[in-house]
C-alpha cells in the first residue's frame, strides 16, 4: 500500500507525464498505481485529468497548440488504457451528461471535433461519437436513441457549415429541449445565435465550459434521474 507521499508522487508523475506528453512516464506511473494498490479512479481524476486540465490552460494561453494537445491526449489515453479496467464499479457516478458529437455531412476534418470529444470524456461526459461526414438525420436518430442531453456539430468548411441550421431545426422538431452546440473554423458566436444553437465553441476548452453551463440549464428545466 502506498503512503500519502508515495501516492502524491505517483499522481504528480501522471499529471506531468500528460503535460509533457511523455507516454512512457505515464505508462510507468499507471503501472505503479496498480502495483501499489492505489485507487485507479483517484489516479485518473487527480493525475491524468488534472494534467489535461493544465494542458487546456496552456492551449487557452497560446502556449500549446493543436499538435501539442494531440500529443498530450496520446499520453492521457495511454494511462487511461491501463487504469480504466481497474476503476471500482460505482466510482464514476459523477457523470455530467450524455453528448452526441460529429462532423457534419460533407466534411472530413475531425481534429477539432476529436479534441472537444476528449475534453468531454475526461470531464466525465458519456460521448457518442458519430465520426465525420455524418448525414443530417443521423444526429437526430442518435440523440433520440441515446437520450442525450446535447448534440455537438462541427464543421471546418463554409460549404458544410450551412447544413448546421437544418440539423438544428430537425433536432428541435424531435426534442425541443435538446441543447445544441456548434463549432469549427468558419462558425462564429453570431452565426450560432442566428441558427438557434444554444452554444458556440471557440475551442475545445470553451466547448467544455459551455456544455456544463448548458446541461446545468437543462437540469433546471427537467430533473435528470
Amino acid at each position: 500500500m502506498a503512503t500519502t507521499e508515495q501516492r502524491d508522487a505517483i499522481i504528480e508523475e501522471l499529471k506531468q507525464g500528460v503535460i509533457e506528453f511523455d507516454e512512457d512516464q505515464v505508462k510507468a506511473a499507471a503501472q505503479r498505481v496498480l502495483a501499489d494498490g492505489m485507487d485507479a479512479y483517484d489516479a485518473i481524476m487527480n493525475g491524468l485529468s488534472a494534467g489535461m486540465s493544465r494542458v487546456g490552460e496552456l492551449f487557452a494561453a497560446n502556449e500549446y497548440f493543436v499538435p501539442e494537445v494531440l500529443m498530450c491526449a496520446d499520453a492521457l489515453y495511454a494511462g487511461l488504457d491501463i487504469l480504466r479496467p481497474h476503476v471500482k464499479p460505482g466510482t464514476t457516478a459523477g457523470i455530467k451528461g450524455e453528448v452526441v458529437i460529429g462532423t457534419v455531412e460533407g466534411d472530413i476534418h475531425d481534429i477539432g471535433k476529436n479534441l472537444v470529444k476528449l475534453m468531454f470524456e475526461i470531464a466525465g461526459f458519456t460521448v457518442h461519437d458519430l465520426g465525420r461526414d455524418v448525414p443530417l438525420e443521423k444526429f437526430v436518430e442518435e440523440s433520440i436513441r441515446t437520450e442525450s442531453d446535447m448534440v455537438c456539430l462541427s464543421a471546418m468548411m463554409t460549404t458544410t457549415m450551412i447544413s448546421m441550421p437544418k440539423i438544428i431545426e430537425l433536432l428541435r422538431k424531435k426534442n425541443p429541449n435538446i441543447k445544441v452546440m456548434v463549432g469549427g473554423a468558419p462558425v462564429s458566436d453570431d452565426l450560432a445565435k442566428r441558427w438557434g444553437a444554444d452554444g458556440y465553441a471557440a475551442d475545445a476548452a470553451n466547448a467544455l465550459s459551455e456544455a456544463i453551463n448548458m446541461i446545468d440549464t437543462l437540469r433546471d428545466l427537467k430533473p435528470i434521474g
Partner: peptide
Amino acid sequence: FSPVSGPLI
C-alpha cells in the same frame, strides 16, 4: 463526391 460539399478525400 459528397452531395453537400462536392469532392472529398
